[in-house]
């Protein structure tokens, strides 16, 4: 009922208005010069570090596994949620900690030490991780624990927002997946006197391990 009333009010409001031309397809503000994998990797790192993300570049999957083990031991993380992505499974294969599938136990997830996910893409322009809900159960594992570690393959880093959006548009059988999440740095707030505090609702720390054979 209200739908019909609102729609007809809109039509009435526009009865003397002719349709405007679609906006130009040329989109301004796109990043320049991120043509090579190495350039994209370094730009991604610079941007993410500028918003308090911690970025590690490693040579291969085994090096990622070793670095993860070292971080877990050093930080004393015991209870660790994982997303189930193959990259995560490999990287956590010899961790001395309790691992669990984050999407299966939200109460444990809310009290665990760390969440580990992979990503589907990353954006050099903004230092952003891009995750699709149909590809990986990232929704809560990247959000509830106090620390989020993401594993990124260098080849997943695209130049700009437009590239990532285009990939997301048809990612789930030609449609967007139910949820596309962009993550750029840890959870933050400036709501009290503009004092920047991280970890208000989501992770206090975002650590990204980039498997980057081409940059080293």
């Amino acid at each position: 009922m209200s739908r019909a009333i609102v729609m007809s009010a809109i039509r009435r409001a526009l009865r003397r208005t002719s349709a405007k031309e679609p906006a130009p397809t040329e989109i301004p503000g796109r990043p320049q010069g991120l043509d090579s994998t190495v350039e994209r990797t370094l730009a991604f790192r610079t941007r993410l570090e500028s918003v308090d993300g911690e970025v590690h570049l490693v040579r291969d999957q085994d090096a990622a596994r070793d670095l993860l083990m070292e971080l877990v031991e050093r930080r004393g993380w015991k209870d660790i949620a994982v997303s189930g992505a193959p990259l995560v499974t490999h990287a956590t294969s010899n961790l001395k900690a309790d691992l669990f599938e984050g999407s299966q136990d939200r109460d444990r997830l809310a009290h665990c030490d760390l969440g580990i996910t992979a990503v589907q893409h990353a954006i050099a322009e903004t230092g952003t991780l891009v995750l699709f809900s149909h590809a990986e159960s990232h929704r809560l594992t990247s959000l509830l624990p106090p620390v989020h570690i993401a594993l990124v393959e260098q080849s997943q880093i695209v130049a700009g927002l437009g590239d990532a959006l285009a990939l997301a548009h048809g990612a789930d059988g030609g449609e967007p997946p139910p949820l596309v999440t962009f993550i750029t740095g840890p959870s933050r707030t400036g709501d009290i006197e503009l004092t920047m505090v991280t970890g208000v609702h989501g992770p206090r720390e975002l650590i990204v391990i980039v498997i980057a054979p081409d940059s080293l």
Partner: peptide, 15 residues
């Protein structure tokens, strides 16, 4: 900011 910490793009409930 160049981008805020999070963007969520929703296309329907869980399948």
């Amino acid at each position: 900011q160049h981008l805020t910490s999070y963007q969520s793009i929703f296309t329907g409930p869980k399948r």
